[in-house]
Design a binder for these strands. Structure first.
Length: 574
DNA sequence: GCCGTTTTCGGCCCGACTGTTTTCAGTCG
């Protein structure tokens, strides 16, 4: 039983409780617990009751329910409530505009059991027998169902961010905006986002709204008010735009950036201090005196908190740390000195060594590691031993001509399904850096596939495990690895784990990154570049690192060349 | 259901937009 599965039960139970009209705070407790369970770095099923109650939002009762799920695979309270309502009602509630109240009414009055029932009745205009529902609502429900059926899942950050940036530049050109910024989960650098949140200031908000809903790639207008509008883009993602005054920009940014859980915590703290926080500012409760809001910092200062960087705002301990002035100084793009996972056209990359060097120098890098695939990966043009030796010679020759920049000799060796590597140690010994990864046998048992990673880490020449879980966001599940064991062995053997910055990988993910760095495992933030443009992916990797609470010193490729080479040789002197 | 430099009980974040209403409930973020 994985954390995801436990979280899903709690989430579904929360939905059923909503249908049942239960206390909203009780419902929130289940949802909050689900979220915390999902981002818990170890399996909650294995955790002791004591560890569980230490988790935020988990008390005696929920700890007991987690144990029950771990032991029986089921939750009685959930199963009981499921008998009260058809399973399809949860999907009915997923239709935009249909919440628990409406869903329950539809079920009781019209016996709507699932989304198909709802669509049929709405098409036949038979929903209008329900008080409060007339033609317009019926049409909106039909639109909403169409949207649900298109299954607009969460969009990978790597698609959403460029799209959002393009929209920002267009709006600054076509609309009377003064300043314009991204907020929401994009600003927090979540690996996938549900929608794009944009915030701007303007003296003519209504003109901005008008320009916004008329953008060329707008497919549907979902809401259109004087200061807030939402549209659905042809690219399949929703965009919310809000206009505020300059004096409120900071508080609006804080509010609109979220996360929701983080904001709720802030507002709870505010209430206790006799303050009120909303998107317009910080106010004193007794006389409504405004204490700030121009800058985001105003909010945190008013609460006696250290400023919390957006990437940390998940209510996963950042507020407690900020109270003690104990937040880490997070790694930044400018700290990155080079890239330790790069392919050339000798294997499946597109560019020559020289072209890559030029592109890397333009970025201000001091080094890159050339890590072509090796023979085990025939499909990717993996290099034979002889070809790798040729490459080594070419790199040596090139390095003699380079000043202030170094090409590191490396390889991305394949960890075969029998735990062996596809290059002998004598050859690995000649390299500056060895990256190892799994490219086959994804369906092996957890024990087998974890065993392969552990064996590779125990090889004295392997420096880095690349894309450790193999997941492709929205396309392929992670291998069934025992992450605790991987992190522990990485710490014991001094092997680094990679954050692969490819937008569909972002692997390791933020939660594991935080757990690994906590045990002193070095992290490499690498782009796995196959074409020069891929160097741009570094910002996604750095985003994951920041979400994983990493400081500069936790990251291998923030080291200067000399220190890096020393660190790489520590595991085994070449 | 959780949680406590006000509290072990009684609180628990806040406001915009929509559709349907004549003042607001429901939904959403």
């Amino acid at each position: 039983m994985k954390n995801r599965d436990v979280a899903r039960i709690f989430n579904d139970l929360a939905e059923l409780l909503e249908l049942n009209g239960e206390n909203p705070f009780r419902i929130r407790a289940y949802k909050r617990a689900a979220q915390n369970i999902e981002s818990y770095p170890k399996d909650v099923a294995d955790a002791s009751e004591e560890d569980l109650t230490k988790m935020p939002g988990i008390g005696k009762d929920l700890a007991g329910k987690i144990r029950e799920i771990a032991n029986t695979g089921k939750l009685r309270a959930y199963e009981d409530l499921r008998r009260e309502f058809p399973d399809g009602l949860i999907e009915v509630m997923s239709v935009p505009g249909v919440g628990p109240k409406t869903a329950k009414l539809l079920y009781e009055k019209l016996h709507v059991k699932d989304i198909d029932d709802l669509e049929r009745l709405a098409s036949d205009r038979r929903l209008e027998t329900i008080p409060g529902i007339r033609e317009k609502t019926e049409q909106n429900i039909l639109k909403g169902i169409a949207m649900v059926k298109r299954r607009t899942e969460r969009t990978p950050l790597g698609e959403a961010l460029p799209l959002a940036e393009e929209m920002l530049s267009r709006l600054s050109k076509d609309a009377p905006v003064d300043s314009i910024e991204l907020a929401g989960s994009i600003r927090r650098f979540r690996e996938t986002v549900k929608d794009i949140d944009v915030l701007c200031t303007s003296t003519e908000p209504e003109a901005v709204m008008k320009a916004f809903i008329k953008l060329p790639n707008v497919k549907d207008v979902i809401a259109h008010g004087p200061t807030k509008s939402s549209v659905f883009l042809r690219e399949g993602i929703q965009v919310d735009l809000r206009v505020v005054e300059d004096a409120s920009l900071g508080s609006a940014l804080a509010y609109f950036t979220g996360s929701k859980a983080h904001n709720i915590r802030l507002r709870e703290m505010a209430v206790r201090k006799g303050l009120k926080i909303n998107e317009y500012g910080v106010f004193r409760e007794k006389d409504d005196k405004r204490l700030g809001g121009e800058k985001e910092e105003d909010i945190y200062r008013a609460l006696g908190l250290q400023f919390v960087p957006p990437e940390l705002r998940e209510d996963s301990g950042e507020i407690e740390a900020a109270l003690k002035n104990n937040l880490p100084k997070l790694v930044e793009m400018k700290d990155i000195k080079g890239d330790l996972h790069v392919h050339t056209n000798r294997s499946d990359g597109s560019h020559t060594l020289k072209e890559l060097v030029e592109a890397a120098r333009k970025r201000g890098y001091k080094y890159i590691a050339i890590t072509d695939h090796t023979k085990g990966l025939g499909v990717a043009g993996g290099l034979s031993e002889k070809e790798l030796l040729d490459e080594i010679r070419e790199i040596d020759a090139l390095n003699k001509k380079l000043r202030g920049f170094r090409l590191l000799k490396g390889a991305e060796v394949d960890i075969r399904s029998d735990e062996s590597l596809d290059l002998p140690d004598e050859l690995l010994k000649k390299l500056d850096v060895v990256v190892a990864s799994i490219h086959s046998g994804f369906r092996q048992s957890s024990k087998q596939i974890t065993g392969r990673l552990l064996a590779a880490m125990r090889n004295p020449y392997v420096n880095i495990i690349a894309h450790p879980t193999g997941r492709l966001i929205g396309k392929r599940e992670a291998y069934d690895i025992d992450m605790d064991a991987v992190i522990k062995t990485a710490a014991e053997t001094g092997t680094a784990l990679e954050i692969n910055s490819y937008p569909l990988r972002l692997d390791l993910g933020d939660v594991s990154v935080r757990a690994a760095a906590g045990l002193g495992v070095p992290i490499s933030i690498a782009t796995d570049t196959h074409a020069i443009a891929n160097f741009d992916y570094m910002r996604y990797g750095v985003g994951v690192a920041r979400r994983g609470w990493l400081r500069k010193d936790d990251v291998l490729n923030t080291l200067g060349l000399t220190a890096l080479l020393k660190a790489l040789k520590k595991k085994h002197p070449r």
